[in-house]
Write a protein that binds this DNA or RNA. Structure first.
Lengths: 193, 193
DNA sequence: AGTTCACATGAACAAACGTTCAGGTATAGA
DNA sequence: TCTATACCTGAACGTTTGTTCATGTGAACT
C-alpha cells in the first residue's frame, strides 16, 4: 500500500484524525491510532504534520473556516431581521447536527490553551453576525430596543447550548423553528392575543 | 507529614483532584500530580480510591448532587412562574460562575463514556424543574401555550450555553436578568407598546 | 509491652505515549 | 539504465502513564 499521491494521504490523515479526535478526544486519540485509521505508517504521518499539535490545529482551522463561511452566506441577503434570526439559527443548528465530529472536537478539550485564541475569534465573528441582525431589527422598528450585545450573547448561548446537547443528549434536541419562535415571541402572553 | 485522619486525607485528595482535573482535564491530570497537590504519596492515593475512574466519578457525583439540590431549593416556593424562571436562571448561572472548577470538569471530556449516564440523569432532572414551571405558567394563563418539552429544552440550552461560555469566553458573559427578560418577552415589539 | 490496625510510603512494572531516524521503494526525468 | 525525488516504513528511544506491593509508622486496645 505504498506510493500514494501525497495530498491524498494528507487528506486521509485529516479525515481519520477528525474521526478519532472526535470519538476519543485529543489525549486519548494517539498518533498510532490515527496513522492506522488513515492507512499510513507512524513515520509517514510525521511526514505530513510535524507533530500532534499541528495536526489538531490544522484540522480545527480548516473546519471552522468552512463552518463560518456557510453560516455567513446563509444570512447575508435576507432583508427581514426576524427571518434572518430564524435562518441563522436553523443553518447553524443543522450544520452542527450534520457535523457532529467537528462539534465534538471543538467542544471537547475546552480548556486547551493552544486552540483557545482561534476559537474565541470564531465565536466573536459569529456573534457579530447576530448583532448586525438585531441592530437592523431595532432600526427598522421590528424589534424591541434591547441591549444588542447582551442579546446577541444570549442567542449565541442558545446555539452553543444546542451544540453541547448534541454531544450529551442527542435525542433531547429541540427544533430550530420552535427556538426561533421563542426568541422572537417570548414566553409571556401577548396583550392582544 | 504522616498519620492523618483518613477522612481528612480523602477530602484533601478530592479538593486537589477537582482543581487539577479542572485545570488540565482528565487525561492530563496525572495521579502523581493529584497525589502531590494533596500532600500524599501515590500509593496513599490508591488507598482511598481504587483507581482514577473512581476518583473522577466520586468527584462528579458529589458536586452534581450539591448543584442539583441548590437549584431545586431556590425555586420550590416561588409561586409566580415568570419569577420562578428568572430565579432558576439566576441561581443556576450564579452557581456556575462561582464554581467554574466543577463546570470545567463537567464540560470537558464530553464524550466520556463512563460519566455520561450520570450527567444525563442530572440534566433530565434539571429540565424537569423548568418544565414544571412552564406548565404552571400555562395553566395559570400567564404564559403562551408553547410546547412545554421543547421550550424547556431551549431554556435549558441557554443555561448550558452560558456554562460553556464561562469556559471559553469568561468576559463575554451575559447577565441572567437580561436573559430572563428575553426569554419572557421575546425580541419582537409588543403590539401595545 | 505487645499486638493490631488504619494510614502512609515510594521504588518498581508493564504499557502506552509522541517523536525520530536509518533505511526502503516506486515513479519521473536524464 | 541510472539518478533524483517524493513518499513511505517500523523498530527504537526516552518519557510518562496508571497501578501494585513490600515495607514502614504511629496510635489504640489488650
Amino acid at each position: 500500500m505504498n506510493k500514494r499521491s501525497g495530498i491524498e494521504s494528507k487528506k486521509r490523515i485529516i479525515d481519520a484524525a477528525l474521526r478519532l479526535f472526535s470519538e476519543y478526544g485529543y489525549s486519548k486519540a494517539s498518533m498510532r491510532m490515527i496513522a492506522n485509521a488513515a492507512g499510513i505508517s507512524i513515520g509517514g504521518l510525521y511526514l505530513h504534520f510535524k507533530n500532534k499539535d499541528e495536526l489538531y490545529l490544522t484540522l480545527m482551522k480548516s473546519k471552522m473556516d468552512d463552518f463560518a463561511g456557510r453560516t455567513m452566506d446563509s444570512v447575508k441577503d435576507i432583508a427581514d431581521p426576524a427571518e434572518a434570526i430564524n435562518a441563522f439559527m436553523t443553518v447553524t443548528l443543522d450544520y452542527a447536527k450534520k457535523h457532529k465530529g467537528l462539534i465534538l472536537l471543538q467542544g471537547r478539550e475546552l480548556g486547551f490553551t493552544f486552540g483557545l485564541e482561534m476559537k474565541r475569534k470564531f465565536f466573536k465573528k459569529q456573534r457579530g453576525i447576530i448583532e448586525d441582525i438585531i441592530r437592523c431589527g431595532i432600526r427598522t422598528g421590528i424589534f424591541r430596543k434591547v441591549n444588542v450585545r447582551e442579546t446577541a450573547k444570549i442567542i449565541f448561548s442558545v446555539i452553543r447550548g444546542f451544540v453541547l446537547s448534541i454531544v450529551v443528549e442527542p435525542n433531547a434536541l429541540f427544533s430550530p423553528e420552535e427556538c426561533g419562535s421563542l426568541i422572537l415571541n417570548g414566553l409571556l402572553k401577548r396583550d392582544g392575543k
